[in-house]
């Protein structure tokens, strides 16, 4: 399992540099929207990583190799779902590094510390995108599902920003009260539980599709 994920990272080692570029661009672009810059970085890093690896595997017809090796199809699918978390972590890390560098050099760019809400918003967006995208990808392959992943990314990107504004600016009393009445631990556990539930459903669907797939 570990080797499957490591292989994905090894295959796209070239784009590690881009991760920092994203962090710089989004931190700069979202100076006025507090934590949204952070969510954008995590989303963009995960989206790019998942897409890059999908395109490389597609180009190399990796399914033939992977399914000729003694690896269970279940494991191949699971590795993809675990790697989502690794890319999220990489996104978070790049945000931390870039914002700390900005602070250390005293650059005139406003940076915001990462809050629990921001991490939760990032997790929910990334999980949502990939939970819809992965089953589509396993069913139709990279070329046909590429557009779906882009639409998903854009709509959830703007969906989340609208949602967060609503909470942030107290335009919607019910939602904001609901969130302010919860403790951080409650928000965290609720979000994580929801994320895992969505991922589990998506995983089971992907598995069913991939088990019957022909190469």
């Amino acid at each position: 399992m570990f080797n499957l994920i490591l292989k994905d990272i090894l295959l796209q080692k070239k784009i590690i540099a881009f991760i920092f570029l994203y962090a710089i661009i989004f931190v700069f672009a979202f100076q006025s929207s507090e934590i949204f810059g952070f969510v954008a970085v995590v989303m963009a890093v995960t989206y790019t990583s998942m897409n890059t690896i999908a395109s490389i595997e597609d180009k190399n017809k990796a399914d033939v190799l992977l399914n000729s090796l003694p690896i269970r199809r279940k494991k191949l699918i699971l590795a993809k779902y675990i790697s989502i978390w690794i890319y999220m972590f990489m996104g978070i890390l790049s945000y931390i590094i870039v914002t700390n560098l900005i602070k250390a050099f005293g650059l005139p760019i406003k940076v915001f510390p990462i809050t629990v809400e921001a991490i939760m918003a990032a997790i929910i967006s990334v999980v949502l995108i990939n939970s819809i995208y992965l089953p589509v990808f396993f069913k139709f392959g990279y070329t046909k599902s590429r557009i779906i992943s882009l639409i998903l990314f854009i709509s959830i990107f703007f969906g989340i920003s609208t949602g967060m504004n609503a909470i942030g600016f107290h335009q919607n009393k019910m939602i904001s009260e609901f969130f302010t009445n919860l403790s951080d631990i409650q928000i965290t556990s609720l979000t994580i539980a929801l994320a895992f539930l969505i991922l589990l459903c998506s995983y089971l669907l992907s598995l069913k599709i991939y088990q019957n797939k022909e190469f």
Binding site: K7, L11, K59, N60, K61, V64, S68, P70, I71, R72
Partner: peptide, 29 residues
């Protein structure tokens, strides 16, 4: 399936390895 694939070697017409990796990286995986 798994036990059998551990005991099978395959050579396909088209290259089925990751073109971007080196021989050693591919071997390691």
């Amino acid at each position: 399936e798994n036990e059998i694939k551990n005991r099978i070697g395959f050579v396909f017409d088209e290259n089925c390895f990751y073109e971007e990796l080196t021989i050693l990286e591919m071997k390691k995986f």
